[in-house]
Design a protein around this nucleic acid. Structure first.
Lengths: 358, 358
DNA sequence: CTGAAAGCGCTAACAT
DNA sequence: ATGTTAGCGCTTTCAG
């Protein structure tokens, strides 16, 4: 029986294997890997060489189990098919990976049942922190995570949990610029298509819009405030509701860019033109906004900012030294493109002839 | 000293805690949780009640460590900001979660350096399987995963690794319908904007296009085949190159929808109209295609199909019973919207006056 | 059918 | 500075 217990060629490459290969104990391997400063440089060198040679990858599960840190960050978004979120995800991933964290993405689709599942998934995988980028429904999650003392960050509605931070978006800033822009162009009748109003963020945007109208001395016509749902379809449907009205606004502002693209589509179908018949302003400034026809005037909210601040804040809660960053504000700014212009000179409050085939 | 060792209220809720609460051993708890059929129903019942009452969540890391199964599926995409991928991710997530798997998303951005990192991330986290949806560069990954015997699935280029499956897209099908559609409309001069040609999938699409041209008896003009990169910017730039030519095609086909949207933008800027001046066809049929102005004629490739088949195939490799699904074909089909029409009657091979301000 | 006990691969005391 | 050892929370033999 010629058994060779020490160097079984098909043996799994674990820390013991590396230790044997480098001629040190597993503790030294562990220390070298974790860059503990007290390790003899010569030994560390040997360890790293073995690691490279054997193509050793530490077992994350074992590490997580013993250390209590999963090195996983949760990222909850509402709707991954809204291009705003992929852009945010991309940056979040970049920053998190750079700092040695992996990221667990889940989308709720605004479905309460799914939210429950999503929270469970995050908890089961023992995320070290979680960013709730649903623009609403933060409360649903916050307490769950706070109860288990998982750092969290979410948007718009401040929380008083100790390990929870808030990102507050300054909607007024960009919205005010937008309303002013329209006012200067000569618009006095501005409609607004909101997001789903059960979301605090959608409410915040609507409220900010109303405030800006008031401080610009513009009237707020209730029938021109239509509830959308932040999707293409929602934008189209909302615009069609406005078109069914007897009195039309001359400009439409939207709670996000997808809504605005839906509006453009509704207008296209109705043979109405932008900006000749309606001026249009979106919100988010997704990359696509530059490519709509015509290119969309919109309000920029930097998703990179959002992502970076979220990761940074989360990680700040994870490090014992230095106090956590607990609040950050995200600015917004108007980006003028080609969907805004002066209202028609012939503009009256009477309903124009509609859908006249050209 | 009134110590109460058994029911420390702030004790972590682990399997021992549940076992104590239910009055059974941890082995029974484990078995009940894993639905081992030989457990006494009465005991199982007690365990489940305790689990619910204590809000117990099994520690996934510990589970993974001992079982060797991470219950994690990797999903590698090339570019998360291309809307095709979020749609695919959404479905992938849905199906995977339904089957009890979590999903690890990584995007390569076509960056070889990043690919290395991405592969490492997947390996470190010990994914049970990985879907490589980069539409190219599969080879970079396949071998790495095959070497460690991780099931994988990827697109277009078949692999001979035992635990690796292929999704082959039938590009010809939809492309042929598209070329025929244009031919019937009267087009004989069709240009094509490709994807990045270092991707096998982009090459496959171009080759399929060329074949369809030939079998339709249409000429293939080299200068009308421009390399794009599957992005908005790439589409715009490619179209501008075509516009700089002396002889124009009358129709443009694109390797994906984002490219087509970029083309629409270039045309808009050049004051050219779709479909009056150019007919345009995309590829993918992302949701947005319905909302471009005018709505984009495109070739549908179902990302849901892709996602479902990928997950199913991956999981089939993970179950010992039944043999793995090793190959699936994804159909494609033309969706006619409003970017295709007859070429101008005045159409000649001479270059029309360009950029005349209206 | 149930329980006791042996690890999974690693980190972090605790020795040396 | 390095090695030895005791777990992290769970699944899974192996006895009973």
């Amino acid at each position: 029986m010629k058994s060779e217990p020490k160097r079984d060629p098909k043996r799994k490459i674990d820390i013991h294997y590396v230790a044997a290969h480098a001629g040190v104990s597993i503790a030294t391997v562990s220390r070298a890997l974790n860059r503990v400063p007290t390790v003899d440089p010569a030994l560390a060198e040997r360890v790293w060489k073995s690691v490279a040679e054997l193509n050793y990858l530490p077992n994350t599960q074992a590490r997580a189990l013993v250390s209590g840190k999963s090195k996983l960050l949760g990222l909850i978004v509402s709707e991954i098919t809204n291009p705003f979120f992929p852009e945010l995800i991309q940056e979040f991933e970049r920053v998190a990976v750079e700092r040695g964290y992996e990221i667990l993405i889940a989308s709720t689709s605004h479905d309460p049942a799914k939210m429950e599942v999503v929270a469970r998934r995050m908890l089961e995988r023992k995320v070290d922190g979680v960013a709730i980028m649903t623009f609403g429904f933060g409360e649903t999650f916050i307490e769950r995570f706070a109860a288990i003392d998982i750092p969290s960050i979410f948007i718009d509605s401040p929380s008083k949990q100790p390990r929870s931070s808030t990102l507050s978006v300054d909607y007024r800033e960009g919205l005010y610029e937008a309303v002013q822009h329209l006012a200067v162009l000569g618009h006095r009748k501005i409609g607004f298509i909101t997001g789903p109003l059960h979301l605090v963020s959608a409410q915040a945007r609507r409220t900010a819009f109303l405030d800006c109208l008031k401080s610009s001395g513009l009237p707020a016509e209730k029938s021109w405030i239509i509830e959308g749902d932040h999707t293409l379809d929602g934008g189209r449907d909302a615009m069609n509701k406005i078109l069914a009205l007897n009195h039309w606004p001359t400009a439409i502002m939207c709670s996000n860019d997808m809504t605005a693209i839906g509006v453009q589509h509704a207008l296209f179908e109705a043979k109405l033109r932008v900006p000749e018949d309606f001026s249009l302003i979106g919100f988010d400034n997704i990359h696509l906004a530059e490519y709509t026809i015509p290119p969309l005037t919109t309000i920029r909210m930097s998703c990179k900012d959002l992502a970076q601040k979220a990761v940074r804040s989360l990680l700040s809660h994870l490090q014992p030294d230095g106090r956590p960053e607990t609040e950050a504000v995200i600015p917004t700014r108007l980006i003028v493109r080609q969907t805004t212009g002066a209202p028609k000179a012939s503009e009256t409050t009477a309903k124009p002839a509609k859908k006249k085939a050209r």
